[in-house]
Amino acid sequence: MIQQILSFLLQVVATLVGGAALLRLAMRWQRMSMANPVGRFVRALTDWLVLPLQRLLPPGNRFDAASLLAAFIVKLLHYGLLLALLGLLGAGGWASLPVLALLGVVRLAVSVMTALVIIAAILSWTQNRTLVTDVLDQLTAPWLAPIRRIVPLVGGVDLSPLVLIVLLQVVGMALGGLQAGLAGGWTVAAA
């Protein structure tokens, strides 16, 4: 019971901080201002980790390697602590940990994108334009645009978010299978 609680708490912290680091990376890539409510939230969650890393890896024009490294470090610590807690870090466990963490970062990116698409779709039904909806639209538009070119409106309803969510879930399942194979059959939590 204690292991389950600790595992859950590790998952929550790693998902929140690692996801915010990836969101920071995406916002930098899209040249979005961090002065909006989403940007302020992301900075509040990640400045403590990303800013020291930016001294080593200064951000480029659009790419922030420090944010990506922060997400990797969070997942590395997450899986390291989790495997140690469960007693699964034997002699060979340490060797697979960086690959598990790398796959975990990609899986986390899939989870973050899925959440963004769901939230943006729900907020689009309200027809209220806010800073948050603008940020979500800007973050999801590059992923939805190619699908919108292929999938027509059905009765005036845009199904591209649904298609993207299904595709993201398939990718997440495949990554989860790869992680489970690396961890010797032990299933790694959702993100």
Rank of each mutant, 00 (worst) to 15 (best):
I2Q: 12
I2T: 15
L6F: 07
L9A: 10
Q11K: 07
V12Q: 04
V13E: 00
V13L: 08
V13S: 08
A14I: 05
T15Y: 05
T15G: 15
L16T: 15
G18E: 02
A21V: 10
L22Y: 02
L25S: 11
A26C: 14
M27L: 07
W29Y: 09
W29S: 11
Q30D: 02
R31W: 01
R31C: 04
S33N: 05
A35H: 12
P37D: 04
R40Q: 14
F41H: 03
R43N: 10
R43S: 13
A44Q: 11
L45M: 13
L49F: 07
L49H: 05
P52Q: 08
Q54N: 06
L56G: 12
L56N: 03
N61G: 15
N61E: 15
R62M: 02
F63L: 09
L68W: 13
L68N: 06
F72N: 11
K75N: 13
L76M: 09
H78L: 08
Y79R: 07
G80Y: 02
G80T: 02
L81I: 07
L81C: 12
L81K: 01
L83R: 04
L86F: 07
G87E: 00
L88Q: 10
G90V: 03
G90P: 01
W94M: 07
A95S: 09
A95H: 06
P98G: 10
V99Y: 05
V99I: 14
L100P: 14
A101V: 06
A101N: 06
L102D: 04
V105Q: 03
R107C: 05
R107G: 15
S111L: 15
V112E: 01
V112A: 09
M113T: 14
T114L: 08
T114N: 12
T114Y: 01
T114D: 02
A115Y: 05
V117T: 13
A121T: 14
A121L: 01
L123K: 00
L123D: 00
S124Q: 02
W125M: 00
T126D: 03
Q127K: 06
N128T: 14
R129T: 12
T130V: 07
L131F: 04
T133A: 02
D134S: 10
D134C: 06
D137H: 11
D137G: 15
L139I: 01
T140H: 00
T140L: 00
A141G: 01
W143Q: 07
W143H: 11
A145N: 05
I147F: 03
R148F: 01
R148A: 04
R148M: 04
R149L: 06
V154I: 15
G155I: 11
G155V: 07
G156V: 02
G156M: 01
G156W: 00
V157L: 15
P161A: 05
L162I: 13
V163R: 03
L164I: 08
L167Q: 05
V170L: 12
V171D: 05
G172N: 07
A174F: 11
L175E: 06
G176I: 13
G177E: 15
L178G: 15
A180G: 15
A180Q: 14
G181Y: 09
G181T: 08
L182T: 14
L182H: 07
L182I: 12
A183E: 10
A183I: 09
G184P: 11
G185L: 11
V188S: 12
A189E: 13
A190I: 11
A190T: 11
A190C: 09
A191I: 13
